[in-house]
Design a binder for these strands. Structure first.
Length: 320
DNA sequence: ACTCTGGCCTGTGGGC
DNA sequence: TGCCCACAGGCCAGAG
């Protein structure tokens, strides 16, 4: 399940293998993956075909390729090819003759290129998506007043797509402000996990890393946000940053090959999970301290939350 | 203005 | 064996 670390792994792969190349042509095998491109598939193809990928940028779980018109030396890039992986999306760099994946949705043919050793690179970028929660679309880049340089992959232009303008900076972004986050968090009248999952408040966190960070910081998911004091905010942010950094390190190893593989379950980080998916198994922190506590799973927000009932007791003034 | 629910999707797996 | 339903969950529209 692609959350921030997985999307960043994909961004790095695209930046390495696709940046500088021209998208020569495109085929849409399932228009549902272009649902958010309101102008339609022909417009999508017409826009991306012939454009050069100048850079690959990410904010939270949104990912986009900045396109430029190679025939016009004065061209100022103003168009982005957006991709969101949703639940099950993958961006794969493959040879055109490679067998079609079962859920292949979009094919983009890339201009020829070689790697640092002069080896020919595959010439197709594929978007594969089983559940179709993700998708691709083309959008205008717009200046945003809150922009500051220095974010991951964000050093090129003070522009972000309009569809990602409401997405907050993520905790690995150099321009992420803990002060601003703390103030906005305290202004909310909701539970802590709901706030962590709100991409407009802090981006990149999904159900897995929310549960992991809450476990690491020993907060219950229903902790009222308006009772969070500054040290509390520091503790949850430290936990979020730590778990995401470790996950990113684990996922980074998958780029030994040319293939951009986004299968989150294939990395070894799954073995490092402490709460998510460990229902009925011992809390390792409790076990280390001589207690026998089992991780339990509760239904919340229409999805599941895994937590240790001893480390993360439900607050008296719980907020959902 | 803010908070929260439902719907979008398909494959998997448990219960009967 | 096969059918049905719950579940997985990021995001957004719209209800409250």
């Amino acid at each position: 399940m692609p959350e921030l670390p997985e999307v960043e792994v994909v961004r790095r792969g695209l930046a390495r293998w696709v940046s500088g190349r021209i998208i020569e042509s495109a085929q849409i095998l399932d228009a549902r993956s272009l649902r958010r491109h309101v102008a339609g598939t022909e417009d999508f193809i017409g826009t991306v075909a012939g454009s050069r990928v100048r850079d690959v940028v990410r904010r939270g779980k949104f990912l986009w390729m900045i396109l430029e018109e190679p025939a016009d030396p004065a061209d100022v890039p103003h168009v982005a090819l957006m991709a969101h992986l949703g639940m099950s999306g993958q961006l794969l760099i493959e040879q055109p003759e490679a067998p079609s994946e079962k859920h292949l949705k979009v094919r983009l043919q890339l201009s020829p290129a070689t790697d640092d050793d002069g080896v020919e690179l595959p010439t197709e970028l594929r978007f594969v998506d089983q559940r179709i929660f993700g998708g691709m679309f083309v959008t205008e880049l717009e200046a945003t007043p809150d922009h500051q340089p220095g974010g991951l992959g964000d050093g090129l232009l003070p522009l972000i797509p309009q569809q990602a303008a409401h997405i907050a900076r993520d905790p690995l972004d150099a321009a992420f402000s803990r002060e601003t986050f703390h103030a906005r968090l305290r202004a909310r009248k909701t539970g802590l996990k709901r706030a962590l999952l709100d991409q407009g408040l802090i981006s990149g966190i999904g159900n897995i890393y929310a549960d992991e960070a809450l476990w690491a910081a020993r907060f219950h998911y229903a902790r009222p946000t308006d009772t969070m004091r500054r040290p509390d905010t520091e503790r949850i942010l430290d936990a979020v940053t730590s778990v995401m950094s470790r996950a990113l390190d684990a996922g980074g190893t998958s780029f030994d090959s040319l293939y951009v593989n986004v299968n989150g379950s294939s990395g070894y980080f799954a073995r490092e999970l402490e709460a998510y998916g460990r229902e009925g198994r011992p809390c390792r922190r409790c076990a280390a301290e001589g207690r026998q506590t089992l991780i339990k799973r509760e239904s919340f927000m229409g999805r599941s939350s895994s937590l240790c009932p001893w480390c993360q007791p439900r607050p008296r003034n719980a907020r959902l």
